[in-house]
Computed example of a mutant assay.
Amino acid sequence: MLPLKPLLVICLAVTEPAAHAQGVAQAAAEVSGAQAHGRRERPAVTPLPAPGKGRIPVAFLLAPGAEVVDFAGPWGVFEYVFPPEAESAPFQLYTVAESAAPLKVSGGMTIVPNYTLAKAPQPKVIVVPAQGRKPSPAVLAWLRKAARKADLTMSVCNGSFVLAKAGLLAGKEATAHHGAYALFAADFPDVKVKRGARFVDAGNVSTSGGLTSGIDLALHVVERYYGREVAEQTATSLEYQGLGWKDPDSNVAFATKAVSTEEHPICPLCEMEVDKKEALHEVYRGRTYYFCSAGCKKRFDATPQRFVDQ
């Protein structure tokens, strides 16, 4: 698996091929029309057990290169939850890392973790953002153990790679940043990758799309604990006008897989449109594939059939 931070950088540079744009527009129009006529039924929200007293511990699992938006967005959501009957803020927020040493996360920010893996309290909610490197065996072991006693383990963006690596997504439906769908499916064939999902609620484990999608998943978690009214109040307090938390399938712009053509070739890993005059390329089974970076080409060369057979 490629280091997740470089993959995220690739994902953020994605541009849609012209042939794909028409399909996206059509899909968006169909969804918009269905919503206008009330044909899309919102899936039922499965409640989580809010404690009668005490707080809900939420652990943010960090590593060097962790994506700031991925964990800061949900942190802000949980921070601003104020149920009318609660005597204090219901969520207890803290960061966890393998070491107590300061972490340099995306954008150059430095974070001093609240706890090491060995000393972290047992969480009820675990938030895993996209990381800057592969998770260590110690991190995966902690995640598996902590998840067994948690109400919910959730990932944001390519944090889903960490959950899958820990075995928490086997046999489940999940999502990731739209630029990582192909790689996610190739690396974890036992996970059903859902394109176009703002988030996927699979009960005690949930995954969200890229970056700001984590805000929507966090609001959905608030609704699961405290109901729609409290989630609405939280969104209002944040002056957050996004409605993706009410519709898990609202990332419709990314629901249709991009199609690579000779006129508009795309990288088979991140689906980024490339200039074939300058792009690295590889011939496989008589067809030429073009790549946006040496990293994508190296990953393709390792197991090309996984990307061709999707």
Rank of each mutant, 00 (worst) to 15 (best):
L143K: 01
P129N: 13
L219P: 09
C11K: 05
T175Y: 11
R148E: 15
R195D: 11
Y94V: 07
P121D: 05
Y226E: 04
P49G: 03
A50R: 06
G65M: 07
D301T: 14
S206T: 06
V127C: 12
K276V: 00
G209C: 09
R285N: 13
L62N: 02
L243A: 15
V58A: 02
K276N: 07
L2H: 06
A34T: 03
A258P: 04
G54H: 09
E232I: 05
R306K: 14
A66V: 10
V77S: 13
E85S: 13
T110N: 09
G33N: 14
G33R: 15
Q305A: 05
V14A: 02
Q122R: 13
A25T: 09
Q22Y: 12
G167V: 02
D301A: 15
A218T: 09
L143I: 07
V14P: 00
E263R: 15
R195F: 06
R39V: 10
V252C: 00
G23N: 13
I10F: 12
P123L: 13
V81E: 05
K165Q: 15
A150N: 07
A18N: 10
R55L: 12
A170P: 09
V127Q: 06
G54Y: 13
A118V: 00
T303A: 14
E278D: 11
P123I: 11
A182I: 03
S99I: 05
L243Q: 13
A294C: 07
A174M: 06
A164T: 03
P83K: 09
A28D: 12
Y289Q: 02
S237C: 01
Y115P: 04
G171E: 02
C267R: 08
K277E: 15
A258L: 02
W142R: 01
K298F: 10
L238R: 04
K172P: 03
V58N: 04
E85F: 02
K149R: 15
C11R: 06
V45Q: 14
